[in-house]
Each structure stands twice: as C-alpha cells, then as structure tokens.
C-alpha cells in the first residue's frame, strides 16, 4: 500500500499547492497572520513570553495546522465525496485505508512546508527559540490528529456546500478563541473558560511552550489536546461516509 499511498499523497500536495485558494488557505494566510499580528503593537501579550514574534509564531503554526488539517481537508473530502473521487479511488489498490493514510500524509507534508516557511519568516522578524521541543512535538502531533480528525469528520459527514461555509466559520471562531493572536487571559471570563475546552487553545499552548516560551505547559492544555487528538479521529472513523 505504501507506493500507491505516497503517489496519492504527492498528487494531493501538488494539487493543493497549484490551486490558488488552497495555497492561500494553507500557506499565505498563516504567513500574513504572522506578518500582521507579529508587527502590531497594541495587542496584549501573555506574561512570560519573550517577544511578540515568539507568541504570534506559535499561533501562526497552530493556525496553519487548523488550515491544513481541518479547513482544507474538510472541503477537499466533502467535494471528493460529492464527485465520487473517494469511491473511485477506493476500488484501486490504494484502497480506503490508503486514502485516509494519503490524506494524513498530505496534511503532514503541508504542515512541514508551513513550519519551515513560518519559522524562517519568524526568524527574520526576530524570533528566538525557547521552550521544550518535546512539548512542540506533542502539540504538533496531537493538533494534527485533532484537526485532521475534525476535517474528516466535517467533510465526511456533511454536504459539500455546507462544509465550505461551516469549516471557514469554525476556523475563524477557533482563531479568535485559540490564543493565536490574542492571549486567553485577555478574553472575557466566560469566553476564556469556553476556549480552554476547544482544541485550538490547547494546540497553541503546547506549541508556544515548545517553541517560544519557557516553563511548564498548563495541565488543562495537555488534557484538552489529548482528548481532541484521540476523540476526533475516532469519531471520524465511526461516522465517515464515502459517498
């Protein structure tokens, strides 16, 4: 299954980068977010973060994972289902398991491209590495699982036209409540509580403490992301529909 899976993953990455809106979603918008929010002075910073660029870089990486794993995947999967693409691929040696593996490989490949581009731009803006890389790896893996699971769940269960609007809306909500541009502590009390139950904030916290900030990760962030990182893929596996 490895060769068909890699061929499919490579084809999907190529198509994503060739498609204007997909490249915009997964690469251009996170980069713009880093450039804009990393430069403005009026937004608050969480305590203990060495610089604004460090904080925003971590947020931009989490934002990019959401874009690749959740928004891009949900839209692609929904339209692939709609047009019979998944059904067609499912009867080739790639198989249904191969399709899912290829989707995951595609997300990881896109995230690696994002990571390199964002870290290089962040370094040019004054980013200094801090924190525990293990937190970053844990956060990156769990966030990828959580958001790809969400993408497959949304794209694999809802109609394509609905997915387009819903996943974009969800992306914006999670951006606002995800401690990506604005720290959780700056949100109104009830929103801060809600945010701590959402995967975006958990991902941001782990990535922040892994790349850009010293000190231990809050327990809630780890618990949050472990639950989302295991829960959404399982739910997607259970509810996904192929056509």
């Amino acid at each position: 299954m490895a060769r068909p899976m890699l061929a499919e993953a490579a084809s999907e990455v190529k198509m994503t980068l060739q498609q204007g809106e997909a490249a915009l979603l997964t690469l251009v918008i996170p980069v713009l977010g880093l450039l804009v929010f990393g430069s403005v002075k009026f937004l608050p910073l969480p305590s203990g973060v060495p610089s604004r660029v460090n904080f925003i870089l971590a947020g931009a990486i989490a934002f990019g994972i959401m874009a690749s794993g959740m928004v891009s995947q949900s839209i692609t999967v929904a339209f692939d289902r709609n047009y019979g693409v998944l059904k067609r691929l499912g009867v080739t040696p790639l198989g249904r398991r191969g399709i899912i593996m290829a989707k995951l490989a595609q997300v990881i490949a896109l995230e690696l491209i994002q990571l390199v581009v964002l870290v290089v731009i962040g370094a040019l803006m004054g980013y200094h590495p801090e924190g525990n890389p293990l937190y970053f790896i844990l956060g990156w893996v769990l966030a990828t699982a959580a958001f790809t699971g969400l993408g497959l769940l949304i794209g694999g269960t809802l109609k394509a036209e609905l997915v387009l609007g819903l996943s974009t809306l969800l992306w914006l909500i999670l951006l606002g409540l995800g401690s990506m541009a604005v720290p959780l502590t700056s949100l109104p009390g009830f929103l801060e509580v809600i945010a701590k139950f959402l995967p975006a904030a958990g991902a941001s916290e782990l990535i922040l403490h892994g790349l850009a900030m010293s000190g231990p990760v809050p327990t809630w962030a780890i618990v949050n992301l472990v639950i989302w990182g295991i829960g959404t893929p399982l739910l997607a596996v259970r509810l996904f529909r192929w056509s």
Binding site: R96, R97, L152, G156, V237, R238, F240, R241, W242
Partner: peptide
C-alpha cells in the same frame, strides 16, 4: 453510504 470503520475490515 460507507464508513471509514469499514476500511478496518479490509
């Protein structure tokens, strides 16, 4: 419709 779960039976 089909489920991903089914793929585990492959």
């Amino acid at each position: 419709d089909q489920t991903i779960q089914a793929s585990t039976e492959e």
